[in-house]
Computed example of a mutant assay.
Amino acid sequence: MPEKEGEQHNLILTQTYDTLIAQYGFVALGNYAVVGTGSAAPNPAQTGLVNEVARTNADTSPAQSNDAEPTPGQAVFTRVREFTEAQVGGRNLTEWGFSPAGAAGNNLMCRELFRDGLGNPVVITLDTDQRLRLIYKYTVSYSPAIGTSQDVSVDINGLGTKTGKFFVSRYDGSYSGGLGHIYLLSEWAGNILSAGGGVWGLFHSVVDVPTTPGPNAPGGNNATNYRGNSFTNLSLVGTTPITRGRKINARTFAANQANITWYGVKIYRYYDPGGGSRVMGNVILAFDSGQEFAKSSLYKMIVGEWVLTWGP
């Protein structure tokens, strides 16, 4: 049984938005708990603890860390990390934080002092046979939220302006706890991209045919609303970091590629657990009914940049 416990808020550091998300994405930001003995007041410009003494990514047993989306558009990440007697036993601890990195140093997403119920800084003194457990929750909000869409218009050179709906989809909600779309956004942000069987991948410009266009399309699980076309020229494309954001570079389809009717464009994430790949989450631009167009071998087509931005 815990001898003492408490709850307090924390301070997200500026470098989280400026550099850490672009390196690690959103999901891994709180993977490591960090404690120290410094007493300086928290400041957004700080990057690490004043005097770090230990960090860990050890979960409790049974594992209690979990991710969930209790409200559409808000993913909550819970990280439960426990320091052993060898790490913190007999120490007087005053500060704590969380980081996406295992190496000690200036790589924290948040920093705070241990405080009492009135918000006053306190010293946490542990006996030599005591452990310390930190439970940390943070929320990532995104838009448009699952179940909603944004009306958009796209100017296509030679074809004029096309209208459509832009939305995020879970697609297959049975994997990653139904948060495949959040992992897609996280891997997009952190440029954590790969391809091949049994790994995660981010692909661009996959043509989909909406079998249920309209208000049903932005639903939480679009496995039955969208079917893949026979077009299979899928490959990873490069990304470019921007200030508090990342863009997926434009992709060119040559005259002999994608000569089909285009009903929309998506970015998706897939996983092959064995026995077939599973689409986990999508970011989709679906043209409105009657706005689709056919590409022929007389033309090449360029799908422009897709941009993801973040900030407080």
Rank of each mutant, 00 (worst) to 15 (best):
K247V: 10
E85V: 15
V168K: 05
A250V: 07
R251N: 04
V50K: 11
F287C: 01
I21T: 07
D208Y: 06
L126S: 06
G89N: 09
V265S: 08
E112Y: 12
P210N: 00
V207K: 07
V27F: 09
A22S: 12
N282K: 12
Y138G: 08
R269E: 09
T252E: 05
N222T: 15
A104E: 13
N92M: 11
A223F: 15
W306A: 03
V152Q: 01
M280P: 01
N282I: 06
Q87S: 06
N282W: 07
L285N: 02
F83I: 08
N120D: 11
F203L: 12
K247G: 14
V50P: 12
Q15Y: 15
L132N: 00
I192Y: 04
Y299S: 06
E95R: 06
V140D: 00
A40I: 06
N106A: 14
G177R: 09
G197A: 15
L185G: 05
L184A: 03
G264I: 08
T78Q: 07
E95T: 09
Q8G: 01
I284A: 03
Q291K: 03
Y24I: 12
T240A: 10
Q291N: 13
N57Y: 04
L184S: 11
D127K: 12
A195W: 10
E112V: 11
A68L: 09
R246S: 04
V207Y: 06
R115P: 02
P215E: 08
T139F: 00
G97I: 11
D208H: 09
V207M: 10
H9P: 05
K165W: 10
V303I: 11
S186T: 10
V140W: 07
T240Q: 14
N282V: 14
Q74S: 14
T16E: 12
S141D: 01
G117N: 13
S65L: 04
L93W: 08
F114S: 02
A45W: 10
D127P: 00
L118I: 05
A258R: 01
G311H: 07
A254D: 02
L285P: 00
T84R: 02
A217Y: 00
G290K: 03
V35K: 00
S141A: 12
L134Y: 05
P2D: 05
I156H: 00
N222I: 13
A75K: 05
G105E: 11
A254L: 09
Y263T: 06
I284F: 14
N57D: 11
Y175K: 14
S153H: 02
E69Q: 11
L49A: 03
E187T: 12
E82F: 09
G105H: 01
I260A: 00
E187I: 13
P273K: 15
A258P: 11
Y138R: 06
Y138M: 13
N259T: 00
Y136R: 05
